[in-house]
């Protein structure tokens, strides 16, 4: 893998611009991916936050869902934040009728688990595997999901460590995939994106 990987951001709906910026500042070349054609030629992909039901429907309508599943099978590295985590999960609790996921990450995710927008919050969390892991990370949780269970091959990298949600799993990774309940792209702290760019370089 070249030292400056090309990483696409699925640009059907949601926080696309923030991921494009964060990736560019983390040593990757970033570009929007809206079509099957644009998916060819990227080394890795980010699925941003947004409405998971909207993104899934748009992916299905533009015939990208199958291509994305093929990319997962072909071991393309993929990072999903919030809605992206839901789309990468093999099992989703609270999905709308007919909602499918891309899958590939052996986890069960609960949609809108932390509650409605008035319960959305920021909290300092610690994340395993990022640069300077002892320094806390500003976790931004917006109508966020959490992980109910993880299967073999999935490592928990972030959990809530106190308060009413203590112990909830909010970050996981496998050998090719990374998923967070929170939105690192909404902060100016690029350590999660840097970790993903490193994963892409090593594969």
């Amino acid at each position: 893998m070249s030292s400056v990987p090309v990483i696409g951001v699925l640009a059907l709906q949601g926080g696309v611009r923030e991921h494009l910026d964060a990736l560019a500042k983390s040593g990757a070349e970033s570009r929007s991916v809206k079509t099957v054609e644009q998916l060819v030629g990227v080394d890795a992909l980010v699925i941003p936050g947004g409405e998971s039901s909207t993104i899934e429907k748009l992916a299905r309508k533009s015939e990208m869902l199958e291509s994305l599943r093929e990319a997962v099978k072909g071991r393309m590295p993929i990072f999903g934040s919030c809605a992206g985590m839901i789309l990468l999960a093999d099992r989703v609790a609270g999905a709308i009728k007919g909602q499918e996921s891309i899958g590939g990450l052996d986890i069960t995710v609960k949609r809108n688990a932390f509650g409605r927008q008035v319960q959305s919050f920021e909290s300092e969390i610690s994340i395993l595997g990022i640069r300077e892991p002892q320094r806390s990370f500003d976790g931004v949780f917006i109508r966020a999901p959490w992980v109910l269970e993880t299967g073999a091959g999935c490592e928990v990298i972030a959990q809530i460590t106190s308060g009413p949600h203590e112990g909830r799993i909010v970050g996981v990774r496998s050998d090719t995939m990374l998923a967070t309940s929170f939105h690192p792209e909404l902060t100016a702290d690029y350590r999660v994106h840097e970790m993903f760019v490193d994963m892409v370089r090593k594969l």
Binding site: L12, G15, G49, G50, E51, S120, F121, V140, F141, R143
Partner: peptide, 20 residues
């Protein structure tokens, strides 16, 4: 872990997630 609700980042971030 201090949990802060209703911050500017959480409010504006919600709108960012509606984009497109």
């Amino acid at each position: 872990n201090e949990v802060s609700t209703g911050t500017g980042r959480v409010k504006r971030g919600m709108a960012e997630m509606l984009k497109g």
